[in-house]
Design a protein around this nucleic acid. Sequence first.
DNA 1: AGACCAAATTGGTCAGACCGATTCGAGATT
DNA 2: AATCTCGAATCGGTCTGACCAATTTGGTCT
Lengths: 251, 251
Amino acid sequence: MGLLKSSSSQPIVSIKSNQVADALIRDVLSGHYRPGERLPSERDLVARFEANRGAVREAMAKVVQLGLAEVQPGGARVRERELASLDTIGYLLAQNALPDPALVDQILVVINNLVSVAATQVVESASDEALTEVRALLQPLLRLDSSDTEHSEARFALMRHIMHTSENLPLQLIARTLFEQFAPNISAVAEFAVPDRERYAIYARQLDIALTQRDIPSVRGTFDAFAELNRETMTRAFVIAQESSREAIAQ
Amino acid sequence: MGLLKSSSSQPIVSIKSNQVADALIRDVLSGHYRPGERLPSERDLVARFEANRGAVREAMAKVVQLGLAEVQPGGARVRERELASLDTIGYLLAQNALPDPALVDQILVVINNLVSVAATQVVESASDEALTEVRALLQPLLRLDSSDTEHSEARFALMRHIMHTSENLPLQLIARTLFEQFAPNISAVAEFAVPDRERYAIYARQLDIALTQRDIPSVRGTFDAFAELNRETMTRAFVIAQESSREAIAQ
DNA sequence: AGACCAAATTGGTCAGACCGATTCGAGATT
DNA sequence: AATCTCGAATCGGTCTGACCAATTTGGTCT
């Protein structure tokens, strides 16, 4: 006995400074505190959250690091949303029960394009073996009998691997940051996503050929189509999710 | 008397926790501590930096937030570089006297492509007035008698404005983050950059037409050429900067 | 050699205090 | 009455010292 490895890397929300930080971040992003406005003093926050000042200060530091506020002796002020860090995207997505469709679409546009760039760099400079690995990940997309989840995971795996193979560090950092914030926050919508397997299969086949021939324009073109299909899939999923949400409320 | 407005928003390095954080970040990024390795305990860092534990903890929190380390009761460990935040790019660029040319090129690829996406979105959905504003920013690039600095600033202003007009929040956040870390860290190279004004003028003219006609493929195509020119300009600047650097050492 | 357990270490939190810079309001000046 | 000035209150940055729970660690026992 005495075996349970226990916890290990569960999302640590139990930590006080993170509780305070998350509450502050939600308040700022929800517009409770508007840009330019003063945030409560550290000592006020100590009282409100029943934490000690050290914890509050660490929470404040996190808010500052997210670019949501700037701090000076005398007080902290909220900054414009456009000056925030990319790490705020996750909080923006999690603000409501369903994420903002417009924001999701914007993220899809960015991610799809970054993957396209990565693919270009892969075709330009990756080894034949690396290219073969990428092509192997296309195979699951050719199947028409996969479950929605399997298909979705196959698409993610493909994009992830292309990013990783690109050897472009900024690209990897951006894509991973977006993925990590995107994935957990669209699950409420993604479960309604039904991929058009036939069209994905067509593009997968085109991509396979383009990669084999290292045909850059073809790779980019196919990826643009792939991207458009991703957006359509998500848009449809939103429609279903919103209907489902309305029914749940009406009931 | 007693007028001096003093300080106000100078880079706050004087703050102890930032000193500690910067030192830690440099150590981690320079490979002094390797991924998986344990970082010194907070109490050790207190002794080394002659700070108190609160300051050290805030520094640690910053390192964690940058994705460079993960902390658990029992110790902190360094994470893989690929798991870091986009905000580490600036530190990577500032590691040596001259930034890493490969990294700079990767950043240029990403930025140029993001601007290209933004331009596409501008053409798709911006108002005529907004489009006119963008076109106005093309004018300085048509001049062949501008100084190197003026030309560089004109290019930056154009890209910045396109990003801002795109109304794609993730795009804006990424681009601003990259710009803010890029600009101050390539000054040592950028001062040797000599733009090929004729070619820039040609692309500016093409872009002007493409924007007026809202011709998306043409916009993207021109931007790709624009991007390639940016990369060439930077590559040449690196050659000169490195020669200049060698001479300075030899002397 | 391996499993196991207790002690030392480590991170998370807390309380209370001091300093310098900033804010802000009351009083003096105009 | 409006403005200016200046001092007090406020605020962030730092420090000291302490306690708890979880993890490590090292030694012991099997």
